[in-house]
């Protein structure tokens, strides 16, 4: 029997999921237990629930797998471990092999989080960090009713690959095409979410709800569509997009 725990943490909506021999046994979001909406905290309670529900301990797991959020890693790493001025940042990143360090940093955070749950043998623990886009595509393909399928992932804010097209066949997923940061549909949508007064990362839903109040036939609406297409986003035939960064210079607030 192969028992695997998946963990998503430190970004937005932390969660844990346990699968045994490929069957989904338990999965939950941490916010439900701590009562803090979209909590990024290490999912102590969700992991504990998954273990209790299945009757297994951390030592009995075959692997613990972490859902990577590439951009987040930069952010957290730098925030926590280094003091810096924003101007010096660019140089800092290009000159230091962060990837190595940041993996160690993540490991440390994971070890600490797990220690809050129960005692376990660190040496025996197999920690895996699959490629981000694969995890994402996996959650769409493996539970699906299809033997083979096209897989489309379209992400929100804070990722390198902002959209991918993969193919799933039997137990394998292969990446065929990807669109990269900062050209992102999620980002584009979130920018309008922000501009229209809603909260990024949770207010997108409100924007979608507001859209039908728009008048599709009005000159104003048509003009808006024209302006967005002319100035902010170029949409190519294959669905890939190019965002005009002049409109999207992110500012820290």
């Amino acid at each position: 029997m192969i028992k695997i725990l998946g963990i998503s943490a430190f970004y937005h909506d932390s969660a844990a999921a346990l699968i045994i021999d490929g069957e989904i046994i338990a999965a939950a979001q941490e916010e439900r237990f701590t009562r803090k909406k979209h909590t990024p905290d290490f999912p102590v309670n969700a992991v504990r629930y998954c273990l209790e529900h299945s009757g297994y301990t951390i030592d009995e797991l075959d692997a613990i797998v972490f859902y990577d959020k590439p951009l987040l890693k930069f952010e957290r790493l730098l925030e926590t471990y280094y003091a810096f001025v924003p101007r010096g940042l660019r140089q800092f990143i290009v000159s230091i092999p962060v990837w190595l360090k940041e993996k160690m940093f993540l490991k440390k955070m994971l070890y600490e989080g797990l220690a809050e749950i129960e005692k376990y043998n660190k040496k025996k623990l197999k920690l895996l960090f699959p490629e981000h886009h694969l995890s994402h595509a996996a959650s769409a393909f493996y539970p699906s009713p299809f033997k083979e399928a096209a897989i489309l992932t379209v992400d929100g804010v804070g990722e390198w690959a902002t959209a991918t097209i993969c193919q799933g066949k039997d137990n394998k997923i292969s990446l065929l095409k990807e669109m990269r940061f900062p050209h992102s549909v999620g980002l584009l949508y979130s920018a309008f979410t922000f501009y229209l007064g809603f909260r990024v990362n949770s207010g997108e839903y409100k924007l979608m709800g507001l859209a039908p109040y728009g008048n599709p036939k009005s000159e104003q609406t048509k003009n808006f569509i024209k302006l967005i297409n002319k100035e902010i986003v170029t949409v190519k035939d294959d669905g890939s997009i190019w965002l005009n960064q002049k409109y999207l210079t992110m500012q820290q607030v």
Partner: peptide, 11 residues
């Protein structure tokens, strides 16, 4: 993001 935990385990 929550689904990423599941996808990570499955991959």
């Amino acid at each position: 993001d929550a689904g990423g935990a599941l996808g990570a385990a499955q991959i």
